[in-house]
Design a protein around this nucleic acid. Sequence first.
RNA 1: GGAGGGAUACCGAAGCGGUUAAACGGGGCAGACUGUAAAUCUGCUGGCCUUUGGCCUACGGAGGUUCGAAUCCUCCUCCCUCCA
Length: 426
Amino acid sequence: MKNVLDEYLARDLMQDATEGVSEHLRDAPRTIYIGFDPTASSLHLGSLVPIMGLVHAQRAGHTPIALVGGGTGLIGDPSGKTAERQLLTRELAAQNAQGIRAQLEHFLDFEVKTNPARMRNNLDWLGDITLVDFLRDVGKHFSVNQMMAKESVKRRIQDEESGISFTEFSYALLQSYDFLELYRREGCTVQMGGSDQWGNITTGIDLVRRMEGARAFGVTYPLVTNSSGAKFGKSESGNVWLDPELTSPFRFYQYWINVEDADAVRYLKFFTLLGHDEIAGLAEAVEREPYRRAAQRALAEDVTRRLHGEAGLAAAERATKALFSGAIEGLSADEIADVFADMPSSELPLDELGGAGKPVIDLLVESGLASSRGDARRSIDGGGVYVNNVRVESVDVAVTTEHMIEGRFLLLRKGKKSYHLLALLA
RNA sequence: GGAGGGAUACCGAAGCGGUUAAACGGGGCAGACUGUAAAUCUGCUGGCCUUUGGCCUACGGAGGUUCGAAUCCUCCUCCCUCCA
């Protein structure tokens, strides 16, 4: 069978791996798990690397398990955190787990006969175990001395200010126990995760060995950053989420289209299933004719399609085309309504446009495109404000019903990318 | 416990009695260039207004001196360094 590790290596998706993983994964179909934290109702782009890790594993014939930390989410992982985490309620964690499952279904095949993806919630075992049993059976195998030596714990212990609670300190035990349970219940022998999970993963491997005398393995992915060192997955408007309610397909698509040249090829390897030749071709295209943005387009198209489907992709592309390459003048009000379904918008009572109309300044402030009237003035003075894609020349300009597209819409724009659609309320 | 140093706008950092809504750098926003990229250049970057001007709020907090204070004095809070 195809060795999934080779795929990871070719895509720069591997940071670290324990001894013998390569043989282990090459010799037979295995069961592999990755944990997802249900701290939010949706996963965001940061989770895309692990997700793709599972996707490649499944394609190589292994069985992927997505473990939602309904139980551990109640505790909070101290790895990479500088302060104590907010605890989730049971209900919230369960609800979030539900949302996450729906998103994973876009990437993993839960239906195939041979190696369907599985979804597990560690609340199923963590929820029932008693404290005494846990301390006796599991806790016994952990050395506090070793736990305190872990980087993530050490940092928090040295920080007099924040410190670390016993709850978070115990996190590694729970995650290790997850691995043990998955080994017992599902025959899972490999845990993967972000590079910050390395410590937790190796601890789990130890536990499986001690309690079951079995050999388990771990693989970690690199932390994705962009070329300017900033964290990946953040746009001007905050986190990019996988949930279309939180980040519309249009915004999602735009995030990828706007990726810097320097990152585009790396991201193609990380986040698409495009073949190596194809990616090499796109890399060359970036070199030769960067203005075509071929890599960015391929990236945006592939990722958006996988997550939001053909319809989502089509909508995103339509809106993109209308906004960036074309003139909205040619569009009918219906088309505009459709294209801008994703855009920030608000309603405007008809009578506000009576008489001399309504000053553009007011519209900018009310729509949130400007933070204050002074800000709105400055933007107009600087030539950065447009009504229906026509630059506003003076701060005195007022909008009347004359400006409305088919009497229904008004398109406000600030700069290149900030739009706001005003729908007229009769 | 003792001796000093500091706290300024989103961040860093000047200013040390008046022309200071506060130099400079970063960040942010916009414009030009371009490819919805990067780099570069330019403008803007407390609020409101009837905008070559006016008013209000603002240099850790509270008082005071002064015609006038971020700038001087007193007390308080918090940070840092050194000595015990």
